[in-house]
Design a protein around this nucleic acid. Structure first.
Lengths: 214, 214, 214, 214
DNA sequence: CATGAATGAGGCTTCATTCAT
DNA sequence: GATGAATGAAGCCTCATTCAT
């Protein structure tokens, strides 16, 4: 009954994680049972526990993966050879793509993780997630500093705090856009994209030096 | 053992809702069982089902109540005889108070409700919640228009879309501040209040007419 | 589907406990599942948890009951208007009856309970069990003292330690007799009763003053 | 990854048994999983089933080994060139050592094994265990007879039955002492050793000829 | 109306054991 | 022979919900 010959552990973990991912995206994390994940992944429920300690670890891995993706999106955006403004918008688009791909982790990442700041009791995946989050903050901070140095961003903005605040505002904006996409369409006749574009622009005024007309 | 002689249905609903409210705030909605609510409210568990169809309806009522409170906060802020800026900040404080008082509905309100836009399957409470939300949007829109008329806010901002975007950004900012209060303290040596104040100011630049240096 | 009208909580607990008791006796505690208990008791599995916090509590109640029974056996034996020797033998018989009725608790009682000496974390049933055990020790100690005073028992025996030692020896003897009843029959052609009688007599020499021929 | 080139079957069995032994002693038999045994032994879990039919057989082997050890202890004690009394106490000490080294088999040996007397369904290890048990009985019987012949032990004691009864009483005493070591300390201010010493002495009166004051 | 009583459905997790390679 | 892989079966427990009284 050996279903797969000799595929490395990581492959099985990925199979399971992928199945879980789809279900989480469709039904939410809490509402998805290990039974369903097993079924979807094509393993027996018990097998799940061969590859993961528990449900939490599956979530943990997925969150970590999502965080990596987010990191890549954003670093990729920043490394483009474009204007500050264009790169800023690419960063925003990165967040949007992230939210679309991992709707549930978006919240988790924005909520719980960093709390375990220097604490012990957490899965290695969670630690790693936190670490990447920190790195991401640094990368963004550098981006802001670069913008200031280039005379494009206003000097007053204390970079780290700004980054963090932006993080919150952007994610709030995106979540709203997603949750109320339909409403936005009907009530103000805008696509999600348009609505977001507006929001991103608006927020850009916040950091950009005067004369930066939208 | 009829606990209260003939008190109207609404009183019992309120008793139950109040008990639920406290538990939800302390432990979260999912983590609170009907058992606990019944216990805290001083009713039998079965009685809960006399006054509410199911758990969801309890949540619905509570969300509605919270929405009313939020409405009051914001309308109250707007009606103050103060400058635009001061009133803007009062609105923000209203949101903060709301988040503090109803941490769990904050998300619900920002997420699911309006989706049922003109749909059938939803509790009367949800409809009402939606209605108040709409009204709130109008009130805020008027506030923005007043600001524009007074020459304090920039003209370009299409009022309804701006209101909505602000809604998202402010709530994102607040949620972040709450979830990472500890982190904010450690990493940037700011209290939640300070961090938020900064964020609100920053966002104010977005709508305020030039020369409005913080 | 209300199976029983208004029987008090204790009745249900007893129903469940009785079913559990039978299964424990037949298959052992570990080997008996809550499912089986529910089935045998004629309740749904979930109902078990209405009346008991968990499996442990069922065991706890049963152990307590058994302890009470044991207490009654022994106090009853001691209160008989007979000679020391006869009463001693009645005590022994009490232990035998106890072992026959509650084979599994015999071990539990002799093993785990008193360990929680003055500790906190234990069910009220366990505390009560411990308390009765203590009382039993006292009763037995008095019996020994009475025997000494009557000039029937040797003076040297430090009463409390003797009681405890006897407790161990008797229970060891009884357990052996039960576990190897068959063997005893075949290897030494004795019934369990005869074998035990001999053992009890032998042990009696230990405490009785000289001239006490078997 | 053949771990050991061509070591005989027995070696592997011993490796596994040793690992199991340690875990059993530390956590109990039930609470030890095959997984853990495999890990500790350095084999794959599946390999365990190459050398043992099932978990039970591992226990069986271990019980057998323990029985051999016990046999050695006791025969060793009897062969000492000392007085009956001293040798009796050595036997007791042997039992104590046995209990300390194999706390879990103590019970098993005293309980289940001989039941399968001349029955079919039992592992070869169990048969062997039984055989050694028998031999042990004989050895002890001879010891008793020697004591009687030497005029040290009372004549009335039918040797085989006495041996068996002693077996039960001693083991009961020892188990009690172990299980309630803490309690003995607190309630009667004795160490386990002291308590046992008393018990052994007490029991010695049972077999010793008069004038044998402790 | 109020509730005591009961439960179906489901959730997570564990573990001894099997089997193809 | 040794093992990686997989799993069936079982266990304990929780909870929203129903219903007869």
């Amino acid at each position: 009954m050996a279903r797969r010959k000799k595929e490395p552990r990581a492959v099985h973990r990925q199979n399971i994680a992928t199945a879980a991912e789809e279900l989480f995206t469709k039904k939410g994390i809490e509402a998805t049972s290990m039974d369903e994940i097993a079924q979807k992944a094509g393993y027996s429920k018990a097998t799940l526990y061969v590859y993961f300690q528990n449900k939490e670890e599956i979530v943990g891995l997925l969150v970590l993966e999502s965080m990596k993706k987010l990191y890549d999106y954003i670093v990729g955006a920043i490394q483009e050879e474009k204007s500050m403004r264009e790169r800023y918008l690419l960063i925003c688009q990165g967040l949007v793509r992230y939210q679309e791909k991992y709707p549930f982790y978006f919240q988790i990442v924005l909520k719980g993780i960093n709390v375990n700041f220097e604490q012990e009791e957490c899965l290695p995946e969670e630690e790693e997630t936190f670490r990447i989050g920190e790195e991401l903050n640094l990368v963004l901070k550098k981006f802001v500093e670069e913008g200031i140095a280039a005379g494009e961003f206003r000097q007053e903005i204390n970079s780290i705090s700004t980054v963090f605040a932006f993080w919150g505002m952007l994610s709030g904006l995106i979540q709203l856009a997603v949750n109320k996409e339909e409403y936005i369409k009907k009530a103000m006749n805008q696509t999600k994209q348009e609505f977001l574009q507006n929001g991103f622009d608006t927020l850009y005024h916040t950091i950009a030096k005067e004369k930066q007309d939208e």
